[in-house]
Each structure stands twice: as C-alpha cells, then as structure tokens.
Amino acid sequence: MNKLDRRLVFGWLGLLALAAIEFGGSYLPLPRSLRPLLLLPALAMVATVALLFMRVATGPAIVRSFAIATVFWLIILLGLGTLDPMTRAVYQVQSTELP
C-alpha cells in the first residue's frame, strides 16, 4: 500500500468515525433548539472530503479561490436569509369577533 492509499484509508475510516459520532450524538437528550448542533460532525466530514478526495489544498490557486468564494456566498445566503426569522419577535394576535 503506497502513501496516498494509506492516507485515503485513514481518511475513509475517519469519515466513518465522524458518521458514527453524529449518529450516536442524535441519541443525546439535547433540547430542541440545540439539536442543529448535530450538523457539526457533518461539517467536519465535508471539510475532510474537500481536503482528501477533492484535493482542494493541493489544487491550483484558482480552485482554492472558488472553494473560498463558495463558502463565502453560502455564509451570505444563510446569514442574511436567517437573520430576519431569527431576530423577529412574534406577537400573538388576539382573536377578534366579527360584528
């Protein structure tokens, strides 16, 4: 087994371990508002796939700039998109009787 194959095997086992952590974490009694934290192992897995299988770190500089731009625009999309619902106060409207 050469060096690249060894790295790929370790990466694959690491990904499966992260998947197991994510699966096991779903059984923790987390409050509903904190359950999206279960996405954290998924983000680590995405980074592993990008670095190991997609070779983003060793690719041409323009590839790294496209990858960084993707993350940047995803942050803009999700950040601005969730800003309003996350900060909006919801007031209950009293029911009114029609005359």
């Binding site: 994510e22 974490g25 779903s26 059984y27 409050p31 359950r35 279960l38 996405l39 998924a42």
Partner: peptide
C-alpha cells in the same frame, strides 16, 4: 458532500427532540 449535509437534517435533528 450533499448527502453528508442532508443526512443529519433529514434523519437526526428531528429525532429525540
């Protein structure tokens, strides 16, 4: 990668809540 992100959103977050 897409499935890695979809998996917790679909199968895990709603469970146990």
């Amino acid at each position: 990668m897409v499935w890695i992100v979809l998996y917790p959103m679909i199968y895990l977050v709603g469970r146990g809540a």
